[in-house]
Design a protein around this nucleic acid. Sequence first.
DNA 1: GTCTATAGAACGATAGAC
DNA 2: GTCTATCGTTCTATAGAC
Lengths: 220, 220
Amino acid sequence: MSAPPTTDTKTLILDAAEILFVEKGFEGASLRSVVAKADVNIAAVHYHFGSKESLIQAVLARRLEPINRERLERLAILRKDTPKGELQLEDVLRALFEPAFRMAGSGAPGSNDIVRLIGRIFSEPSHSLQLFLRDRFREVFDNFTSAFREILTDLPDLDFYWRIHFMLGAMCHTLCDRERPVLLSGGVCDVESQDEVLEQLVAFVAGGLRAQSTGKKRLS
Amino acid sequence: MSAPPTTDTKTLILDAAEILFVEKGFEGASLRSVVAKADVNIAAVHYHFGSKESLIQAVLARRLEPINRERLERLAILRKDTPKGELQLEDVLRALFEPAFRMAGSGAPGSNDIVRLIGRIFSEPSHSLQLFLRDRFREVFDNFTSAFREILTDLPDLDFYWRIHFMLGAMCHTLCDRERPVLLSGGVCDVESQDEVLEQLVAFVAGGLRAQSTGKKRLS
DNA sequence: GTCTATAGAACGATAGAC
DNA sequence: GTCTATCGTTCTATAGAC
């Protein structure tokens, strides 16, 4: 309640950069376009962040940190409230997806943009960014992979890891593009409804994860 | 047999641009880096392609055209060889996926790179590129959507279109990143085996498409 | 912490000779 | 069809005054 209503330069820069990175990509958006939108001086970016790459990481970290923390918290709560060996696949999927998708419906400024950015980060070609993300996601990945492994006990390792990969693909693609489902479906899909997209994604991915194994490595 | 063994400038530029676009992204790769790699003059790019944007479209069109043509051919053959109403989901999925994934195993120079580029195009922020792609994919999308609709007769429209979207996400993400499955699985997944990834993807997507409807719109 | 000014390099694009 | 030369712009980054 005592937080000052004025927004400091650092936040102004982060907000502007976030929107422009979504619209133009990390390479396509220049620092100059960022400071123009934020209405601050170009030198302020280097003072507060040091370089464009550090700004990119700061933009991502600001959003990813609370999302990934909530994911881990929700998984921990699930584990606490569930008897050993009775984790439900759909519950774990919701714990993983919902923190990211909910942000799009939060109404916060730029919140509808940032999910698109989060969906796109895994397909960014920059090596340094990929290393940065690997660190940021390691804990979430390890914990959720363990949970899924406990549930999908009958699945061979080969099938299991491929399907984890496909699941991430469906999630990222859906975060990334909020318009295509509406266009392709002629308006049937409602991208404004976070519950709709979440439940649809959970149903699809759960079906994919539970599909019968191809069994290629089970002939031995 | 009478094709000259020398590679013309236009092809040299396309080959170099393709690889650099994969490594650095469309914005991150400059025309100057392209001509340096192709060992041609900077002016040659503008002579042959007119602009960087036209070069990007030419790079994509060269690979997408044969892939999408093969997709349509395979679907047409499937329809011809299958009695009405008996199309198999897995067969249609293979007709859609295989032409793209096979390219990675073709051994042709740069073929392992271009699939990553194809996987990434849908998450590119450029509006003009999205319009270009919409045109290039319309026929494939319409034909395959019809085929899927004939097979998944029990699925409400809402679920159907969402799942088409999720399917594209799993496909693009898998094309895009040829390394992550190997890393995440500790070497269990073999990204060199095109058959393995194809069959795994078909099994996952088929399971997702066939999952029970969430039924939210079936209460009426 | 914010500003002006500018360095120093890279960018896409073009003109015109050959 | 390919070249050199260069235009005009934009880029990231920094130095130094306030």
